[in-house]
Write a protein that binds this DNA or RNA. Structure first.
Length: 152
DNA sequence: GCCAACGTTGGC
DNA sequence: GCCAACGTTGGC
C-alpha cells in the first residue's frame, strides 16, 4: 500500500465537503499538471491512503485521511467547454487528464499545519516542504506517513 | 530548440 | 494583495 498527499483549496472542496457527501466518495478531478496526472493515471492503487491537505487558506495543513477507491480514469471535466477545467486539447478518444475517486477516511483531531511540517527535522525530504514545491499530489514514504501521523 | 512573456500556485 | 517559483505557450 502506498501513501500520498493531495492538496485542495477548502473554499473549492474541503474535507467537510467530502464527509458530507452521501457516500463520502468524490472524484479528485481538475488536476492539470502532468506530474500529478501521471500519479493519478498510473500509480495510485486501490486502498492507497492519502492525506487531505488544505491549501491557500488561513492555516494550510493536513486535515484528514482519505482512501483511493477507484483508480485512474479520464477526467471528463476536461471535455466540457462550460467547465472551468475545460481543456480543448483533451479529447474523449484520447484523454489528457485523469482522476481517481477518494473516500473519506477520517478527519484529524486537529490540523497538522504546514508550519509544523516545516519545523520537523525528520521531514526535510518531504516534497511539500521543499522550496518552490507546487505539486498538488505527491507520494510519501511509509516513514513520512508515520511521522506525520504521530504529530496529530 | 531557445527563451521571453504570460499564467498559475500558494504561502505569507 | 504581493510575489517567488514554476510550468506552458508561441514566435523565431
Amino acid at each position: 500500500m502506498a501513501y500520498w498527499l493531495m492538496k485542495s483549496e477548502p473554499n473549492e472542496f474541503s474535507i467537510d465537503d467530502l464527509s458530507n457527501r452521501p457516500e463520502q466518495i468524490e472524484p479528485w478531478d481538475g488536476v492539470r499538471n502532468y506530474q500529478a496526472r501521471n500519479m493519478l493515471k498510473d500509480q495510485m492503487q486501490l486502498g492507497d491512503q492519502a492525506f487531505f491537505y488544505h491549501s491557500n487558506c488561513d492555516i494550510p495543513g493536513i486535515v484528514g485521511i482519505v482512501e483511493i477507491v477507484r483508480t485512474g480514469y479520464p477526467d471528463d471535466k476536461a471535455f466540457d467547454p462550460h467547465d472551468k477545467h475545460y481543456d480543448p486539447k483533451s479529447l474523449p478518444e484520447n484523454p489528457r487528464w485523469y482522476r481517481v475517486d477518494v473516500k473519506f477516511g477520517r478527519k484529524l483531531a486537529r490540523t497538522i499545519s504546514l508550519k509544523q511540517l516545516k519545523e520537523h527535522p525528520d521531514l526535510v525530504d518531504l516534497q511539500l516542504v521543499q522550496r518552490g514545491n507546487r505539486l498538488s499530489i505527491m507520494p510519501l514514504t511509509p516513514r513520512q506517513w508515520q511521522i506525520i501521523l504521530a504529530l496529530e
